Simulated assay, not measured.
Amino acid sequence: MTMTKEEILKAYHFRHATKEFDPSKTISDDDFEFILETGRLSPSSFGTEPWRFVVVQNEQLRNKIKSSSYGAASKLPEASHFVIILARTPLDMRYDSAYLKEQQSKEVPKEQLTRRLELLEEFQRHDFKLLDHERFLTDWAVKQTYIPLANMMMAAAQIGIDSCPIEGFDIEKMNQLLDEEGLLEDGHFTISVMLAFGYRKKEPRPKIRRPFDDVVKWVK
């Protein structure tokens, strides 16, 4: 079924960074799998898919996250579902890594793989200069995780589910916690952003955005 433009914009107006969730309401398994699938199907640079979605429903781990993240403190444990989006580190994101060789082999026919990897190296080394500093490859991966982040929030809004993206945490402390939980796979992942889902406890204030003509500039 095709949604109308009005229906799509209605979802965009509906979506807001929900500060308080109703703890009495739970997202169905079917609805949440749908939300996760929209994240999985998101596009990525060179088809790298440099992300992992960790769905945290364990109460003990949720309490640890709540204690380590001021941004999550008001969302947990009330949120129906809580997702930590991880980004792959240079161990996987460098052009000659085992992960990218395997991933690129899915993107192109075998006879084109060598050329594809050469293009990827050119992109990383010269175009975006991602090899100049180890942090740049991590940042490249982290930036891409915001594509599925947005897609999952909007998919949720389209079916009447609320969400809130969370950056309010100390990266080093959260990585230490996640590493202790065995979720970072020996340095192959790092935390990028977190995302709470559920149903709003109260209606939000009206959405405020800058005027259209201030945000959009046409070059003709």
Rank of each mutant, 00 (worst) to 15 (best):
M1G: 12
M1N: 07
T4D: 07
E6F: 08
E6S: 05
L9T: 00
K10P: 04
Y12P: 00
H13R: 10
A17W: 01
K19V: 03
S24G: 06
D29E: 15
D30L: 15
D31S: 06
E33D: 13
L36C: 00
L36T: 01
T38G: 02
G39C: 09
S42T: 12
S45F: 08
G47W: 07
E49L: 10
P50W: 11
F53P: 11
Q57A: 09
Q57E: 08
E59I: 00
Q60C: 05
R62L: 12
K64F: 15
I65L: 03
I65W: 06
S68M: 06
A72L: 02
A79V: 03
H81R: 14
F82E: 02
V83P: 06
D92V: 05
R94A: 14
Y95A: 01
Y95L: 06
S97T: 14
K101T: 03
Q103W: 02
E107W: 00
V108T: 10
Q112F: 06
R115H: 14
R116A: 12
D127R: 05
D127M: 10
L131M: 15
E134I: 12
T138E: 09
T138F: 06
Q144W: 10
Q144G: 02
I147K: 01
M152F: 12
M154F: 12
Q158P: 00
G160W: 13
I161M: 02
I166Q: 11
G168C: 11
G168R: 15
F169P: 12
E172R: 13
K173I: 15
D179E: 14
E181S: 09
G182T: 06
L183F: 01
L184R: 05
L184N: 00
D186H: 14
D186P: 03
G187K: 12
G187S: 09
G187T: 09
S192W: 07
V193I: 13
V193D: 15
M194D: 00
F197K: 03
G198P: 00
Y199A: 04
R200L: 12
K201E: 01
K202W: 04
P206R: 03
K207H: 01
R209M: 10
R210E: 14
V219L: 02
